[in-house]
Design a protein around this nucleic acid. Sequence first.
DNA 1: CCCGCTTCCTTGACCAGGTCAAGAAAACAG
DNA 2: CTGTTTTCTTGACCTGGTCAAGGAAGCGGG
Lengths: 156, 156
Amino acid sequence: METTWAEQLRTAGLRVTRPRLSVLGVLAEHPHVDAETIATAARTVHPSISPQAVYGVLKALVGSGLARRIEPAGGPALYELRVGDNHHHLVCRGCGLIADVDCVVGQAPCLAPSDAAGFAVDEAEVVFWGLCADCQVSRGTNGYGTSSAIEEGVSA
Amino acid sequence: METTWAEQLRTAGLRVTRPRLSVLGVLAEHPHVDAETIATAARTVHPSISPQAVYGVLKALVGSGLARRIEPAGGPALYELRVGDNHHHLVCRGCGLIADVDCVVGQAPCLAPSDAAGFAVDEAEVVFWGLCADCQVSRGTNGYGTSSAIEEGVSA
DNA sequence: CCCGCTTCCTTGACCAGGTCAAGAAAACAG
DNA sequence: CTGTTTTCTTGACCTGGTCAAGGAAGCGGG
């Protein structure tokens, strides 16, 4: 896994830099994180990295297809390395936990609207809202969005 | 149509005020608008309305179920009066135009994830991304998100 | 191994969308 | 009409994020 990040960057036409490797490392460990959490985590490996560098790196990664950006309503944007498989997300209303869900159909758009109203649809973005197992148990005790709660992703 | 807004507000336990009626009027004319556009449009009817009043009114309307808030990635939140039918949205990547799409299944959640990972899912939010008819023709000439382009909704 | 060009990171200003709090004004019950 | 409660106005403030200028680092050629 670690053998290829540098190569992937180069293949994408990007230079291999410490900030980029740090961010990729964080993303590999934490499936769905926001920019600020990435910055904090990356700083354990590369203390001098600036928040703006993280934004820049993420933009470069998303732009070159190495990462994907998702923006759940009511929260900051999250980033993930899993790209190209058109998967969807489960979001917990209680704690903000995000889990991946495989798409039933493998290709985008995985769904077709009943009436496209003249649109040429290229992607169907699906977000399932609900409560994760933990929040179903401890209902009401959990605040929203302490980013530490978002760190663990449940792979579908 | 206009006969019932006051009643709907009262039924919801809200007082009937000029700002609220103005905002409802704007929402009835423009199916999917952001808060700022609502404020501007409402000002033609109620010139002294403040932006914060609009936020307050919208929050009250959403909280009482009279309006729905949608937050397409990369743009401000939009509001609509069509509630309770679990419909979805088509968003144009070119001009930001939004159109409603009826849900194939009438009830929420209209979709079930293939593997819910322990989540209790109560809603499936679907956003179809693509290009509207106009933007398919004039590709590349259109900027993104001049809010005047968002005013007209295409009912599915 | 070093040089130079290009890309990238750092620093800092700035912006949009939105929330919070205090006091004034308006709605409604009596 | 009056009092109480809700709501609106005004203004400060916050988060998440972008933009721009200059210095530093990557990397290809010698």
